[in-house]
């Protein structure tokens, strides 16, 4: 199935050619979860804190559907 992905901030460095906030498509097997997507993108697990699917945050075990739009970003903590 095709999933549209946006990554933000420092996560772009893990994905060749990725530009923050600009969507790109990725193929995943049917029934794949958010965690599978993160694995496929080779983003280290510790670097991801928030994943949103179709505009709502979802946990790593959330099952994706074809054409879902997923955004992944690391929350920041400085002041």
């Amino acid at each position: 199935m095709k999933i549209t992905v946006r990554v933000y901030a420092t996560l772009c460095r893990y994905i060749p050619g990725a530009v923050a906030g600009i969507p790109f498509d990725i193929e995943l097997p049917d029934g794949a979860a958010v965690a599978d997507l993160i694995g496929k993108l080779e983003i280290p697990e510790g670097g991801v804190k928030v994943t949103f699917v179709n505009g709502r945050t979802q946990p790593p075990n959330w099952i994706l559907k074809p054409e879902d739009e997923v955004g992944i970003f690391p929350p920041v903590g400085g002041g």
Binding site: A9, V19, A20, G21, V50, F52, G55, R56, P59, G71
Partner: peptide, 20 residues
Amino acid sequence: QLLYLDGESGRMDVIPLREN
């Protein structure tokens, strides 16, 4: 909700949060 600013790309998103 979480407003997230990416100053590098100039984009800003507002994302509804839920109890994760």
